[in-house]
Design a protein around this nucleic acid. Structure first.
Length: 260
DNA sequence: ATGACTAATTCGATTAGA
């Protein structure tokens, strides 16, 4: 079972890029972030025609997440628990029924948090605390669980080309990285780090300042795996070449293969 | 020293992204 995560930066702007990618790569599951559209306006039929079940949790203009699955998808839940007043669409989960195993899959778009300090950064850290509580419950289930998406977290200095440029940034502040380690300390594994310890493995290159041409990237799109999911991991990688393709997002797809 | 790019909203300039 291949599970990809992809921040598409707008389904309207990225429709042809995304449908071409689905047609070519055909991941079993695609977790999308920043669909930037309400559920009723999402191009559901066009993507169903490519063989996918479509579950969205959208909102107008910003944010919005989706699960696309070629496999049966049950028990879909929208929204991150813990704050009834939070209206931002950043979390969706469902159970994907593989040939051998069922996998609980969470698609997430973690808040950016800039500028820091400030209310946006407070929202980010509060959101991460709520995510930790949900992740703790999922780990306790002792089932294969995958939490994947745009974390807006640079975990370590080896995950950014120029660490000194990011010292004051919400994506790389010590409190941000500590909260990410807090997730790992529940017993979750960063899938790419089960595959390689190399520096310079990035998933995002800014549209500005010629970041792509200079390989001035950061790794912020992650799959965290429960122990039961990590036991099923066959491979993980980042589709870097997508950043140089036609009408690219600023993020590229990242995928894992599970024996499930 | 500063802006640089892209998308959404809605048709121009603002907000947001990271």
């Amino acid at each position: 079972m291949r599970i990809a995560t992809y921040n598409i930066n707008g389904i309207r702007a990225r429709f042809e890029t995304v449908t071409a990618w689905l047609g070519e790569k055909a991941p079993d599951v695609a977790l999308l972030q920043e669909i930037k559209i309400v559920d009723e306006a999402f191009p559901r039929e066009e993507i169903e025609r490519l063989g996918y079940r479509v579950e969205t949790h959208g909102q107008k203009s910003f944010n919005g997440v989706a699960i696309l699955s070629r496999l049966p998808l049950d028990d879909v839940v929208r929204g991150l628990p813990g704050d009834e007043s939070d209206e931002q669409a950043r979390w969706i989960e469902g159970t994907v029924i593989g040939e051998r195993r069922a996998v609980r899959v969470c698609g997430l778009y973690l808040p950016n948090g800039n500028p820091a300090p400030g209310p946006k950064y407070d929202y980010k850290l509060g959101w991460m605390a709520r995510m930790r509580a949900r992740a703790e419950a999922l780990v306790a289930s002792e089932e294969p669980v995958v939490l994947a998406g745009d974390y807006n977290v640079i975990p370590e200095a080896r995950d950014v080309r120029n660490p000194d440029n990011w010292r004051e940034d919400a994506l790389f502040l010590p409190a941000t990285r500590a909260a990410f380690r807090g997730l790992e300390n529940l017993g979750l594994y960063d899938a790419i780090r089960l595959r390689t310890q190399a520096a310079g493995v990035y998933s995002f290159w800014d549209f500005q300042r010629g970041a792509w041409g200079r390989d001035n990237g950061i790794r912020i799109d992650h799959h965290l795996l429960s122990p039961q999911a990590a036991d099923l991991l066959r491979d993980a990688w980042i589709e870097k070449e997508a950043r140089g393709g036609a009408k690219p997002s600023d993020h590229v797809p990242v995928w894992i293969d599970l024996d499930a």
